[in-house]
Design a protein around this nucleic acid. Structure first.
Lengths: 203, 203
DNA sequence: CTTTCGATACCAACCGGTTGGTATGTTGTC
DNA sequence: GACAACATACCAACCGGTTGGTATCGAAAG
């Protein structure tokens, strides 16, 4: 089955918007990259903003598949699963910057004030992914007897740290700085759950 | 002394670019907000990109003044100074999102691939500000005998966390989530330097 | 089985408005 | 009168979006 124009446009959007930003990406850019015409674009999306919302949703589904099938869910200990997630995020940082950075994190900075639909789609993507971490965090909080944080808050903080790491990588034009930043995130989680000299509460 | 067109344009850029993003901000937008004409714009800046570089530099100078005169430098203990800095950053999060978020963090996401001059100016702004934290971090590392991190890396991580907090605030359209994220940054620094003094543990 | 018909998918050409940028003044100051 | 600091008028290219039309399909009618 040959890919439809709609699917090709969505894939083109993931790449082009991460390279050039949302506003700087023209409808013609997307059509050229997807190999379709403008008529096809506006047949499938009623506006450029509507494509952005669809692209954010497409991004959510794509990344959800990637993370659901990843190996970081395997460890028996919930803290180990969280740390494996962080390591997995670190391992994804490779190659061109536009290939490992986050579509919705890029897009929401430009669109939050102009389109509530786009902003909402980006938030759903970020918050929805963060939610997939909450069960492990809640289990680790229970097992290691940690107070003062909520699973939701820490899950969102992992995403904030990673988004910030991407910004620094773009600014320095160096993926290495993003890896270094995520190292701090990992250290925070380790310190939070395993302070020196204390062991986990044995069940 | 009445403000020159150049100064008015730079001030207009700080506001407008944070509201709408760099690409979506037109030269006409800036001229209208600054109350000057297009001729004045291109008299002072040879291109829109050149204004972006100047705006990033102007941002660096403006924020440098704000932070240099802030009270967080007062505590005698270097760790207290770092924590006071984090509290100060938290206290700045108030009002409209475009008023407390970071110009260069917003701009670099759009421009890193298109203009190396803009990207470099943004990196200088972020890295330059991070450097102002390094002396206190180095002193705290020495005083509290902490290993495994460098002052430069931790200083950059504070900026990454804060930039990520801004992204989440934009996505959720809620400054509160940014404040919550910076709370995690503060906890990380506390755990890093004072692992034995954890207050957050449940009895 | 064939024909008709409506719906979907797609295309090339085009539209009015906006874009960053320029060319040519005019004004105020030394 | 020289020169910086603006303003006015303008342009070619590009923008998001619309137009009228074609190709291809499955379902239903004959």
């Amino acid at each position: 089955m040959k890919p439809s124009a709609r699917a090709k446009l969505l894939d083109a959007a993931l790449g082009t918007i991460r390279e050039k930003g949302y506003s700087a990406t023209s409808v013609d850019d997307l059509c050229a990259r997807a190999g379709v015409t403008k008529g096809a674009f506006f047949h499938h999306f009623k506006s450029k903003d509507a494509l952005a919302v669809a692209a954010a949703d497409h991004w959510s589904e794509t990344t959800a598949g990637l993370f659901a099938s990843a190996a970081y869910h395997d460890p028996a200990d919930p803290l180990d699963r969280i740390l494996a997630y962080v390591d997995f995020r670190k391992s994804l940082i490779d190659g061109e910057i536009a290939e490992f950075t986050c579509l919705v994190g890029t897009m929401v900075q430009e669109a939050y004030g102009a389109s509530d639909d786009i902003r909402g789609a980006c938030w759903r993507s970020i918050a929805g992914h963060a939610e997939t971490l909450e069960a492990d965090i809640a289990a680790a909080i229970e097992k290691y007897n940690v107070g003062g944080i909520t699973p939701e808050s820490l899950a969102l903080y992992t995403q904030a740290s990673i988004q910030g790491a991407f910004i620094l990588a773009k600014a320095k034009n160096d993926p290495g700085v993003a890896i270094d930043m995520i190292g701090h995130l990992k250290r925070y989680i380790e310190l939070l759950f395993k302070p020196e000299g204390r062991e986990a509460r044995r069940p």
